[in-house]
Simulated scan of single mutants.
Amino acid sequence: MNNVKSLNKWANAHTYLPVDVLRMALGVFLFMKGVYFVSNIQYLVDLISPIEKIGGGMFLLHYIAPAHLVGGILIFFGLLTRWAIIAQLPILICAIIINFMGFMHHQNLLLALLSLGVCVFFLIYGSGKNSADYFFKMEQ
């Protein structure tokens, strides 16, 4: 807990508008991916087909899209950002692994790597000064 407080203090002292815009763009991207997966469920089924033999395929179908939808909204507003990103990490790591197990989609691999990198950055950095977390913390 002490580490999180020190990270938040550092992030709030070094916050910049482009970093907040990047957080918002990540939230919009994840939300739009969730909408795309909900509207094209067969595409999602085809994506996770290389790991279907392991089991839990139905769980993955019901976890990926809602996690992207809800996580994207939370990340956009900066509300519970670290928790929302922790929910995204397994999805993004599996997206990278799936590209190596099945047919290689270079664009999907690049998007997954970029999203994972930005998520890890915000997992460490936090939501920043222009966020709902900061607003609610100041209201106390």
Rank of each mutant, 00 (worst) to 15 (best):
N2I: 10
N3Q: 13
V4Y: 13
K5H: 13
S6F: 04
N8P: 06
K9M: 11
K9D: 15
K9F: 08
K9N: 14
W10Y: 14
H14S: 13
T15W: 15
Y16K: 14
Y16F: 14
L17K: 13
P18T: 09
P18K: 08
V19S: 10
R23D: 07
M24G: 10
A25P: 04
L26A: 11
L26R: 07
G27P: 04
G27R: 04
F29K: 07
F29E: 09
L30Q: 02
M32Y: 02
M32V: 05
K33Y: 01
K33M: 05
K33T: 02
K33A: 05
V35P: 00
S39W: 00
I41E: 02
Y43W: 01
I48K: 01
S49W: 00
E52L: 10
K53M: 03
K53R: 07
I54W: 15
I54Q: 10
G57E: 03
G57N: 07
G57D: 02
F59E: 12
L60H: 00
L61I: 12
H62N: 15
H62L: 15
P66H: 14
A67N: 13
A67H: 07
H68V: 01
V70T: 13
G71P: 05
G72L: 09
G72T: 11
I73F: 13
I73N: 06
I73P: 02
L74K: 04
L74W: 04
F76A: 05
F77D: 12
L80M: 13
L80E: 10
L80V: 11
R82K: 14
A84L: 09
I85C: 03
I85A: 06
I86E: 09
I86V: 15
Q88I: 07
L89W: 10
P90L: 05
P90H: 05
I91T: 06
L92Q: 07
L92T: 06
C94P: 01
C94R: 02
C94S: 15
A95I: 05
I97L: 10
I98L: 09
N99E: 08
F103A: 01
M104P: 00
M104E: 01
H106N: 08
H106Y: 12
L110Y: 05
L110R: 03
A112I: 01
L113H: 01
L114F: 05
S115C: 05
S115P: 01
L116Y: 03
L116F: 12
L116S: 06
G117E: 06
G117W: 04
C119L: 08
V120M: 13
F121V: 08
F121T: 07
F121S: 03
F122N: 06
L123A: 14
L123Y: 15
L123K: 15
I124E: 08
Y125K: 14
S127F: 02
G128V: 09
K129N: 12
K129P: 04
S131T: 12
D133T: 03
Y134M: 12
F135M: 10
F136S: 08
K137C: 04
K137F: 03
M138I: 12
M138D: 10
E139A: 13
Q140D: 11
Q140C: 09
